[in-house]
Design a binder for these strands. Structure first.
Lengths: 227, 227
DNA sequence: GCAAATTAATGATTTATTCAAG
DNA sequence: CTTGAATAAATCATTAATTTGC
C-alpha cells in the first residue's frame, strides 16, 4: 500500500532498457538427504536464463509475491506457471555440511583463516564441492558464524570461569572494551583486517577472462580486493 | 593459479576416504556437555586431520591478508604487524555515485525498497551502470547504509525533539516497551521481509509462510549514542 | 522399536557499529 | 562531516540428535 506511487515514475525512467537476461542459477537437485555422506548427486547445475522486461512493480515488491517474469514480448512459450516458477527446488533446504566439509573448514579455521576473501572462498568452495553440494555463500557464512560463536563461547568461558591465566603478553590491542566487557579478541585473528569479500566479477578478470564487461555471473557477497 | 595446489591437497587426503562416513552424519547437535575432552567421538576413527599433507599456506593467500597460520609451534610470536589490510587500490577508489544514480536509488527507496535481493540488485546495477561505473555491491551497500542512516537520523530527531524545556523528564528510554516504538522502521517498510540476497533459489519460498510477528526488540539500546 | 515432541546446534539474514576515503 | 565499505553482533529459521510416550 503506497508503493504504487513510484512505479510509473520509475517505469518511465528506464523502460527503454532492453530486456536484460539474468541467470537464475538453480542447482538444487534436492539431495535425498541420505545418511550416506558420500553422496555425489550434486553437481547438476541447471542454468536457466530468463529475460526480464524489468517491471518495476515486481522490482520493488518481491516479497508480495513471486517475481513475475511477464515478458512483454511473448516470444517464447515458457508457460509462466505461477508457483512452479521457482519451485524447481522443493523445500529450500539450507546447506547441510558433510563431515569432510566440516573437517576441512575447521582445519582452515585452525590454520588461522577467519575471513576469506572472494578468491579464497572460491577455492574452498571448489574443493568442498567434491564432498557435497555447496556454494560460496555457505563457506562465507560458515566462517562468519564459526568465528562469532567461537568468540562468544570463549567470552562465556572467560566470564563463567575466573580470569584467563594467560596475560603474559601485555598486548593491549586497545580493543575498545564494549560496555566494559573484556572483549577477548582471538589472538590469531588479526585486528580488523579489511578483506574484500565482494565481487566475483572482478575475480574473473583475474582468473582468465579478458572481458571487461559487467556480467555479474555470481553476484553476491564476495569480492576480492581489486588489485 | 593457486588452485592446483589446493586440489592436490584435498584429493590426496580425503578423496580416497570412503570410510569417512561412519553412520553419523553430523555431530550431535544436542551435546550434553561432555566433560571429557574427546568430544569428537564420531570422527575419532578418522582423526588424522592433523597429519594432512595439505598445506594450508598454499590455501591462504599471503598477498591478500595478514592471515598467518600459527605453526605447530605455539610460540608467542604475536604478529602485531597489521599488515595493512588496505592495499590502497592502485586506481580503484570507492564508488562515487553520480547524481542520476543517487536519484534512482532514492526513488527506489522511497518506493519502499529496503533490502533488494540478488535479482533486484542485479537489475538495479544494470540500470545504474548506464550512468556510471557501479557494481552490485555498491547497490547493496547503499541500501544498507541508507536504511540504517535514515533510521538513526530519525531516532536522533525524535529524541532531540522530545527535548522540552519545561519538563526535563523525557520519556525515559524505556527499552522494555516494545511494540509501538516511534522510531522503528518507517511505515512503508515491510516488517522483516526475509529476502534472500545470495541465491536466487529461495526467491519466494517465504511468500505466504507464516505471520512475521517478530518484534525485533532491540535488547541493547544501552549505548547512549556513542561516538 | 518407532514416531511425535523437545531441544541444542547452526545455517542464513538483518542490524549495529566501525573504519576510512574524499 | 558525509558516506561508501566492511565487519561484528543480534536474530531469525531450520535441521537433526535426543527425549518421551506408546
Amino acid at each position: 500500500m503506497g508503493s504504487m506511487k513510484v512505479h510509473q515514475f520509475t517505469r518511465g525512467f528506464w523502460e527503454h532498457e532492453p530486456s536484460l537476461t539474468l541467470g537464475c542459477k538453480r542447482l538444487r537437485p534436492l539431495a535425498p538427504k541420505l545418511p550416506n555422506t558420500t553422496d555425489t548427486t550434486a553437481a547438476a547445475t541447471t542454468t536457466t536464463t530468463h529475460s526480464l522486461p524489468f517491471d518495476i512493480k515486481s522490482f520493488i515488491r518481491p516479497e508480495s509475491g513471486p517475481i513475475k517474469l511477464l515478458s512483454s514480448d511473448d516470444n517464447k512459450k515458457d508457460p509462466p506457471s505461477p508457483q512452479s516458477q521457482v519451485e524447481t527446488h522443493p523445500g529450500g533446504t539450507r546447506w547441510n555440511p558433510t563431515q569432510e566439509q566440516i573437517g576441512i573448514l575447521e582445519m582452515l579455521y585452525r590454520g588461522g583463516m577467519r575471513t576469506p576473501n572472494a578468491q579464497q572462498i572460491e577455492q574452498i568452495t571448489a574443493q568442498l564441492s567434491k564432498y557435497g553440494k555447496i556454494e560460496g555463500k555457505n563457506v562465507f557464512y560458515w566462517f562468519q558464524n564459526h568465528k562469532a560463536r567461537e568468540r562468544q563461547k570463549q567470552k562465556r568461558n572467560s566470564l563463567g570461569l575466573s580470569h584467563s591465566p594467560r596475560t603474559s603478553t601485555i598486548q593491549t590491542i586497545s580493543l575498545e572494551t564494549r560496555r566494559g566487557e573484556v572483549v577477548e579478541r582471538d589472538e590469531e585473528d588479526s585486528p580488523y583486517k579489511r578483506c574484500r569479500r565482494w565481487g566475483f566479477e572482478c575475480l574473473e578478470e583475474q582468473i582468465g577472462n579478458k572481458e571487461e564487461e559487467h556480467r555479474t555471473l555470481e553476484l553476491f557477497p564476495l569480492h576480492p580486493e581489486g588489485r
